[in-house]
Simulated assay, not measured.
Amino acid sequence: MGNNVTRFEAGEGVTLLGGGTLGAGDLALALSLAPRLVAADGGAARALAEGHMPEAVYGDMDSLGPEAMARIPAERLHVIAEQETTDFDKALRHVVAPVILAVGFTGARIDHELAVYHVLAARPDARCIVLGVADIVLHAPPRLRLDLPAQTRVSIFPLAPVTGRSRGLDWPIDGLRLDPLGRIGTSNRSTGAQVELCFDAPGALLILPRDHLAAARDAVAAASVWSRPARTASL
């Protein structure tokens, strides 16, 4: 088993597979849009069971049994022993790609799912979309342009105080201060062919129906991500 934890860098989309609930067709859908496969810990066993060999596995490997581990080439196993972060975090911080589609991270334990959204909020530079049963979730970049049909649900859930501007929403967010303990922005709707969002700081999660995963993938791949310190964007 390799001792060096190296980054996985890809010029095309990466599917990141976890060991949580995996809906029928979820993995096939993600791989059709992001064909490179990386696993987080026990997600590697799920990949093997689905007939796929992950190109890299990241985590503390406490959920990956010896039989599955023996089937994976040692150089693809990247053990990160620290217990301060989740396996999702461990994997996400080592994968560099135009977009990452995370599947198998929702729908089971609520604390685990909340931890996933914490990681999304804490890593605003990651181009990651989490696939759930009904929705997809991503950390809104400084500016995002989405092609969406009219009356598509667009929810903004702040995990930190943020302000921003919008075009193409029934209820514009211009002039609003969104805050997890104050005003939130769920159940908004698109008005036409394109929605444009821009934010002054990281911290806003964008939630869309999963039917629009392909559009979100294209938008995230084309967007600039947050740098540190965050830069202000304007329409």
Rank of each mutant, 00 (worst) to 15 (best):
I80N: 01
C128N: 05
L22W: 02
T85S: 03
D111L: 14
Y117V: 06
P161S: 09
G192S: 05
G168L: 02
L33Q: 08
L92Q: 00
E82M: 07
R165E: 10
G65F: 12
D147E: 13
A140H: 08
V38L: 08
R76Y: 12
T191P: 06
P229M: 11
A10C: 13
L176Q: 15
P209M: 13
D62F: 05
L22F: 11
T186M: 15
I173E: 03
L17T: 04
L178A: 05
I184N: 11
R123K: 04
L181F: 10
S155P: 05
P229W: 07
N4P: 13
P172T: 00
P98I: 07
L29H: 12
C198V: 06
T163C: 14
L144M: 12
V57N: 02
Q83L: 09
A30D: 06
G203F: 01
A30Q: 08
R7G: 11
Y58H: 00
M69T: 06
A219P: 01
L169A: 01
V14M: 12
T106Q: 04
A150S: 04
L29Q: 12
D89V: 07
A115Y: 08
I80Y: 11
A39W: 14
L27T: 07
P229C: 09
A216S: 12
E12P: 02
L29V: 13
N3E: 11
T232V: 15
A68I: 05
R217Y: 05
I110S: 12
A74I: 09
L31M: 12
G203T: 01
G132W: 02
R93C: 10
E9R: 15
P202Q: 07
A230Y: 14
V137E: 00
P158L: 03
